[in-house]
């Protein structure tokens, strides 16, 4: 088998195609613009978070606190906007939410880059701390009268219409944020020294330090970037839902990490691609959506995702072992 055939991207893409074919056979209305836009809409939050997680995995770390950051930023920003009566500017809303996300990301960075603590331990701690702080000191009630800017944003569509079968479809403007995040992240990773330093640090921290990369600065950037993405994703989520619910988003972390790992990023660091991550996100969103369409109970989603992770990470590992055995 050629090496490209065993890459995660290819496996995931094949599974996606297969899943689409099966779903379309059972439910022909699946193949519609409405479904596509629906999935895109559902993919914005997971996609933004996944891009951040991918960056962390490439840099050789892991972050499980990003959902708490997203929920915290979303809720605190909405609350500020409402309480201060400054909810008319969308730009300001995003700046506040991303700013809060950045600050929380910096707390992670302080422990990880500053004190050199293990990333999993730190982010497990901050996951719990951010979430607890949010519920205990910021608030635990739903904010359903979201500021006007957020409400308008939720109604803003790039495309809307009704297809031949009479289904209504619409694509929220928020999807532009996902596209922008993809383009910016791609540019950083593949066109800037900073991006190469993320790969370098993830490949070999020691070697990166030896040739003069500032490993700590790279880590600060990575965790800050995750914070900004999480803050942005949180605000988009609250806008689209037209409610800031402090218990939203948290709990998604394993699903997001699963999407990224399915896309070929390695937990040991150094590897990860945007294409792979987006495919992983697509697969997770697809599983979440289509199983319902297929009449499979939602509890099976978890089983299915678990199985896909084992397949997606196990198959390339198995192939690598066969190769190693042959070469000896």
């Amino acid at each position: 088998m050629p090496s490209w055939a065993t890459r995660n991207e290819v496996i995931v893409a094949l599974v996606i195609v297969a899943l689409c074919v099966v779903t379309a056979l059972i439910n022909p209305s699946f193949l519609s613009l409405a479904t596509l836009f629906d999935m895109l809409r559902n993919g914005i939050l997971i996609g933004l978070l996944a891009i951040g997680v991918m960056l962390v995995l490439i840099s050789g770390g892991i972050d499980v606190s990003f959902t708490a950051i997203a929920a915290f930023s979303m809720y605190a920003a909405t609350m500020l906007l409402v309480d201060l009566g400054i909810g008319d500017s969308l730009l300001l809303a995003f700046l506040i939410s991303a700013g809060i996300g950045l600050s929380l990301g910096m707390i992670n960075a302080l422990f990880i880059a500053g004190f050199g603590l293990p990333t999993l331990i730190v982010t497990l701690g901050t996951l719990s701390a951010f979430r607890g702080f949010l519920l205990a000191f910021v608030g635990s009630d739903l904010i359903s009268n979201v500021p006007p800017a957020m409400r308008d944003f939720s109604r803003s569509m790039l495309v809307r219409g009704t297809d031949a079968a009479g289904y209504f479809y619409s694509l929220p403007t928020a999807v532009l944020f996902l596209i922008a995040a993809v383009v910016i992240t791609w540019f950083i990773l593949y066109r800037t020294m900073l991006g190469r330093s993320i790969f370098a640090v993830g490949g070999s921290r020691e070697a990166a330090a030896r040739i003069g990369f500032n490993v700590r600065a790279t880590q600060v950037f990575v965790y800050g970037y995750v914070g900004v993405l999480a803050g942005t994703a949180g605000l988009i989520h609250a806008s689209l839902a037209r409610v800031a619910n402090p218990s939203d988003i948290v709990g998604l972390e394993l699903e997001v990490i699963a999407a990224v790992v399915l896309g070929g990023a390695r937990l040991t660091g150094g590897y990860g691609t945007i294409t792979g991550t987006l495919l992983g996100v697509t697969l997770i969103v697809l599983v979440n959506n289509t199983l319902v369409t297929l009449g499979i109970p939602t509890t099976w989603q978890k089983v299915m995702i678990g199985f896909l992770i084992l397949l997606g990470t196990g198959l390339p590992a198995f192939q690598a072992r066969l190769r190693a055995n042959r070469m000896g």
């Binding site: 790969f199 490949g203 070697a207 990166a208």
Partner: peptide
């Protein structure tokens, strides 16, 4: 320039 025993290469690059 030091070439260490582990060569300090980036395995992923």
């Amino acid at each position: 320039q030091v070439i260490f025993q582990d060569f300090a290469l980036f395995p992923n690059l």
